[in-house]
């Protein structure tokens, strides 16, 4: 009989710019090792995962990151009283900092495990520090510059030539071809995600991504590279295919070994015509396409739970190349009663 676990998962926003929660949950539900019951953690009443009752047993709203760590801890403690949580998998970049800060307390006071990067690992891969990070670890990263005020856009001419990529602190990026477009992207992205904005050298090539898992001791437990085959207007993969590319796997192993990364991560990489690889971003959590890894033979979310529970996990040695995912949209019919329940009580 498989051991029973109750795992709380956030990122239930299975929308056109999807969070990783539902793919993580699907992989957990297919675990061969554990019998997993899912508790959803949500921020908004219309996150589709709330209503996917075959995947999510019960859901609770949690406070937005701006409310602070203590509010989050209190809410998690209360949810724990109801559900006896064994494990939490946070899936949003913006919430990770608080969860990293609370990791020890959640373990010592409530007995809840997690598998997260350390605060220094989390900080070192921030977009604003990525160039220095790449330099330190011998990985090519496009040159970048922090933009803190509109006047900084004009100064970019001194060190960069257009086109450039203007990126938000957590999400969103635009390719801009002149100063006017750069300024417009600055206002648009900073209004949504705050400052700083990052201006990055534009590298021409095809984008490839890797979903991976580190055990915190420098070992890569799993890594699956993917190329997006269909991209939405928000730049999200709507279809993708697993690749056989040793260079991508080598870069991943090198990075995880150098940083002793613990937990899930996604690497965004550009491969140029000349077969050079530039690291664009390190996302400190699984991507929304992580279910493809499970489909290709590596159940990263299950392995993440095992690492977090302190088990010895052997690295995956293989995955199926040429495995595709194709996303789709699906209309669920939801009773008003459910919507009003999550909206007013914060529980569904």
């Amino acid at each position: 009989m498989k051991p029973k676990l109750t795992i709380a998962v956030s990122g239930l926003n299975a929308i056109d710019s999807p969070g990783p929660g539902i793919p993580v949950i699907r992989a957990l539900k297919e675990s061969e090792k554990y019998d997993i019951r899912i508790v959803g953690l949500s921020y908004e009443a219309l996150e589709p995962g709330l209503y996917m009752r075959d995947l999510v047993a019960v859901s609770y709203q949690i406070p937005l990151p701006a409310a602070g760590q203590q509010m989050l801890f209190d809410r998690l403690a209360w949810i724990h009283q109801q559900e006896k949580l064994d494990f939490i998998i946070p899936n949003f970049d913006a919430e990770l900092f608080h969860f990293i800060k609370l990791e020890k307390r959640l373990k010592s006071e409530l007995g809840i495990s997690m598998c997260l990067p350390s605060e220094s690992q989390f900080e070192a891969r921030q977009k604003a520090q990525l160039h220095a990070f790449g330099k330190a670890h011998g990985i090519k990263v496009p040159k970048d510059s922090l933009v803190l005020k509109p006047a900084d856009i004009a100064k970019l001419r001194e060190d960069f030539s257009y086109p450039l990529v203007i990126k938000g602190k957590y999400y969103e990026a635009s390719i801009v071809y002149n100063e006017e477009q750069a300024l417009s992207a600055y206002y648009k992205i900073s209004a949504k995600w705050g400052l700083p904005i990052i201006a990055q050298e534009y590298v021409k090539g095809s984008e490839v991504n890797v979903t991976a898992l580190g055990d915190g001791q420098g070992n890569t437990i799993g890594a699956v590279p993917m190329r997006k085959l269909y991209i939405t207007d928000k730049g999200k993969a709507w279809a993708g295919i697993t690749l056989d590319d040793d260079n991508l796997l080598d870069m991943t192993r090198k990075l995880i070994a150098a940083t002793q990364w613990k937990g899930g991560l996604e690497l965004e990489i550009i491969r140029t015509e000349d077969e050079e690889y530039y690291l664009l971003e390190i996302n400190p959590r699984f991507p929304a396409w992580v279910y493809l890894a499970q489909g290709a033979g590596q159940n990263h979310p299950e392995a993440l739970v095992a690492i977090g529970l302190g088990e010895k996990v052997a690295p995956f040695t293989d995955y199926q190349v040429g495995k595709l995912f194709v996303r789709y949209s699906w209309d669920m019919i939801v009773d008003l009663q459910d919507f009003q329940k999550i909206s007013t009580t914060g529980i569904l």
Binding site: S206, V208, M226, R227, I241, L243, D244, D245, G322
Partner: peptide, 10 residues
């Protein structure tokens, strides 16, 4: 059937 797939780059 003539479907050619390059696993290196998709």
């Amino acid at each position: 059937t003539g479907f050619l797939f390059n696993p290196g780059n998709g």
